[in-house]
Design a protein around this nucleic acid. Structure first.
Lengths: 354, 354
DNA sequence: CCCGCAGCTGACAACGTTGTCCAGGCTCTA
DNA sequence: TAGAGCCTGGACAACGTTGTCAGCTGCGGG
């Protein structure tokens, strides 16, 4: 069975149809074996009161003998809540999302919920497909790191009671809870830091501006430059490049042109890593500040100065808000912005080498 | 509702009981609105044949108007398969597991299944709790990175038809599919590499030997030393330390004693990172080979030589085996061992500095 | 003109669980 | 000892969906 089409997958049909759940025992089976009623088994399984120790023992023996395990699918159907939440992010393999995901999981666990997650791979259609699949599973809530910029498709779901919190980027076209890092302020401070160290020709390499964080960081870059009265040249900016090869090319171009940059601001962790590589091969010393912290940044020569955001805190905050929505403690959607932190390690403090 | 106790969480009861699923429309509602039978709606929703275009249009309109979305919980109950698989690992935030998890997800997606995951935090009880919760949800299959060493609790589940594959470490006490990296061979080669570069006093820092990979790597270390006819001194080995502070202490002790080591073999990515930090502060040059690749290892001075394992490949292999179990293509449990790869970058080629 | 057939459609049971409600037996008190 | 009240246990419906099957319509052919 495919969660998208609803069609069965051919190969599995043959083996499985005659063997539903591998013929798992049900409460009925347990009841028959223990010689009690169905509901009595239910009571024992759920630790409800009103069962004599003797009866309970008989039921428990039957449960153990048959290897019975309650079917939570049926339970969910009956009770209405699934005790699970969905997390849709861009890519679990990205070191930024690991801690975020784990933080969400911990909060979910504290509330007795399981976590279902999916990677959108930065594809809006895939995001929607995943989100709707999770809604069809009737997750109690959703934590979404948006790939797309139009989330009206979620309106009926939210209206129907699916708690929803967006993280890292705001929702598009709908009013919903959102937890962000202060990308604008962080980038502005990072670039201002470079300016304070004497740089005027500063390059910016970031992701596609349709991604909110990328746009905000670009805005921060422009704001810092404007504040310092430095006109920005087009050749200093590279937008929408994200794969290593193109980042490399972009960086090399900035360092080569007629007015080469003396410093680079890297818009996210992946860009930073590639730029570090390029600079390591470069003869002239070039300053660097990156958005997002990266592991081992302190051990490089020079250490990499970064604008750090706390991924775990983002996840934790979002998940806590989600459960407060579910509690009914929360009513109005809100936008929460977490501060970033500039960590100086050397690369951002290099003077311009003209 | 708590997936462990089955008890409702008090705070949510009040708000939710009168508002099941937020009163989502059901097929019955759609049928009423479209003026057709229940089953006809089901047919339209599932794209089954035998519906006039006109009827289909009416139903579709009703669906859109009501914002209906099929309840997959009910569907699952009826059909028997959930189109979801569970992944239990140690810690999603660990950079080793991100790519692994993502790889499992991609394979699941290709088979139309969703991924539910949980972190055991290296706690056997928590692993069992998670696994059984997933079984109660009737996941079709499980990919487990074991924390415990006794998995007999899974026997009834496997017998009942839950496909199961263990990754990174073998299952305990039961016969099941397992996909591993060649920890023994990798560690032996890594240590032999150090020996080949003239080292004789080589330290080993690894995790608790009750963790299979840690034990295997230790065995590899001992084998390489034995092959070279080098007797190992107890002070050269540090087992069961994993938090940075204690790794630091262990490394410093090895470098300080009466017969200080001239090289260190680090048993996993986290140990490697800490050892790199210690060595960076150390006056004498000390060689290092680490198990697991780490990002930016090539940019450090010197680059860090590692025994790399392919986390994504581990996940992919395991997931593919899982679905082959589900297809019925697979019958007998097997143990698959993936090779490791020595990547020389400098730190492992340093000569001994006595 | 009637029969058969095909194509649509819907009534109904079933999936495994939980909530409601009632029956029967027990204890305790007046 | 009768009546009230409590404790235990079970019958039954319901959750929302899908599979089965039977009924209905309209059409073509005998």
């Amino acid at each position: 069975m495919d969660y998208r089409t609803g069609k069965r997958i051919v190969a599995e049909t043959a083996r499985r149809t005659e063997n539903r759940y591998g013929n798992r025992p049900t409460m009925k089976d347990v009841a028959a074996r223990a010689g009690v009623g169905l509901k009595t088994v239910s009571r024992v399984v759920n630790g409800e009161p009103g069962v004599t120790p003797d009866t309970e023992r008989r039921v428990q023996e039957a449960i153990d003998a048959l290897g019975f395990r309650r079917n939570d699918s049926a339970r969910v159907l009956r009770k209405g809540r699934t005790a699970s939440i969905g997390l849709v992010l861009e890519d679990l393999a990205d070191p930024f999302y690991g801690p975020l995901s784990r933080a969400v999981e911990e909060v979910a666990r504290a509330h007795g919920a399981l976590l279902i997650n999916g990677s959108s791979a930065e594809d809006p259609d895939r995001e929607q497909e995943l989100v709707l699949a999770l809604c069809a599973r009737r997750v109690d809530g959703l934590v979404v790191i948006p790939a797309g910029d139009d989330h009206r498709y979620l309106e009926p779901e939210i209206k129907a009671g699916v708690a929803t919190v967006f993280v890292d980027r705001p929702a598009g076209q709908i009013d919903a809870d959102v937890v962000l890092s202060d990308s604008f302020g962080g980038a502005r401070d990072g670039v201002a830091h470079l300016i304070a160290h004497g740089h005027r020709r500063i390059g910016f390499i970031g992701d596609m501006p349709r991604i909110h964080t990328a746009a905000e960081r670009l805005r921060g870059y422009r704001a810092a430059m404007a504040d310092a009265g430095i006109p920005v040249e087009d050749t200093w900016m590279s937008l929408g490049v994200t794969d290593p090869q193109r980042v490399r090319k972009a960086a090399e171009d900035m360092l080569a042109g007629p007015s080469p940059v003396t410093a680079i601001f890297a818009g996210n962790n992946r860009v930073t890593v590639t730029v570090v590589r390029v600079l390591a091969e470069h003869s002239r010393s070039v300053a660097l500040v990156g958005f997002d912290d990266i592991e081992l940044a302190d051990l490089l020569q020079p250490g990499v100065t970064v604008v750090a955001q706390d991924a775990a805190q983002l996840g934790r905050t979002a998940a806590e808000r989600l459960f407060r929505q579910l509690d009914g403690t929360l009513v109005l959607p809100e936008r929460i912005e977490l501060p970033t932190r500039l960590i100086t390690r050397g690369s951002g403090e290099l003077p311009p080498a003209d």
